[in-house]
């Protein structure tokens, strides 16, 4: 039997408004994500992790990897505006390539999961077409998207971006603490996905229901 793998994409806003505590909080949580996932043999074996950051442009900071093999990753650095178009376009192309490569290596690839984190409204108005390309129902590897918003983002945007579930910071925690909770929910989701079976005995995406400091919002129905 070919081995199942579940790719995770952390897509992170590093626009200028993230400068200071938010960026520091994410940079501090990256070693923890690495430890918890990479140090768990079964989870590292069954999941892959990719880090994408975006502001005016988007870049892959860590190509899709087995975290147990990774020894360093580039840090986030705040600058520029908030282009969702750049993020979604790069994400679609990256997933396309990654899924093909995993399949070529003999894996059975499960639908990728995207943790999308943003602190502000997009500065480009025409991001919808890039988003539709990413979530096109006729494109087989279209990802499940969990959207996390804090700071200046509004609930409609989070609901539009999320395909399965959204989370909006409720202001009860500061940005650093809220991002710490975000990182914990990402770690738990990856670990639970890699270690609990669905009814058919296979792996499936385990999503957080509630994240401390965030309000859960349903994805926008179409």
């Amino acid at each position: 039997m070919s081995q199942q793998v579940l790719p995770f994409y952390l897509v992170c806003d590093e626009s200028y408004s993230m400068d200071g505590a938010p960026i520091d909080a994410i940079n501090k949580s990256l070693p923890e994500i690495h430890q918890e996932i990479g140090g768990n043999p079964v989870v590292a074996d069954k999941t892959r992790f990719c880090l994408i950051s975006f502001s005016s442009t988007a870049q892959v900071l860590l190509p899709l990897s087995d975290l147990s093999e990774v020894t360093s990753m580039p840090a986030m650095a705040a600058s520029g505006s908030t282009s969702y178009t750049a993020a979604f376009t790069l994400l679609r192309d990256t997933i396309e390539r990654d899924v093909a490569a995993l399949k070529a290596a003999g894996h059975q690839v499960l639908r990728p999961a995207v943790f999308f984190l943003t602190d502000g409204q997009p500065t480009d108005d025409d991001w919808v077409s890039a988003y539709q390309r990413l979530t096109d129902p006729s494109w087989k590897p279209r990802p499940n998207i969990l959207a996390f918003g804090f700071g200046g983002v509004n609930v409609d945007t989070i609901q539009q971006v999320a395909t399965v579930r959204g989370f909006l910071a409720d202001g009860s925690l500061g940005p650093a603490q809220a991002l710490q909770e975000f990182a914990q929910s990402l770690i738990q989701s990856v670990i639970n996905s890699g270690t609990s079976a669905d009814a058919g005995g296979g792996m499936s995406l385990a999503m957080p229901d509630k994240v401390p400091g965030f309000t859960t919002v349903p994805a926008d129905p179409v």
């Binding site: 070693p31 923890e32 690495h34 430890q35 990479g38 140090g39 768990n40 043999p41 147990s68 093999e69």
Partner: peptide
């Protein structure tokens, strides 16, 4: 003990080749 703190010695550590992350 792993770098980030204590970890349970789960059976899974007997099923793979060791990694530096295992402490």
């Amino acid at each position: 003990r792993r770098a980030k703190g204590p970890a349970l010695r789960e059976l899974q550590y007997l099923l793979y080749d060791p990694k530096p992350l295992w402490g």
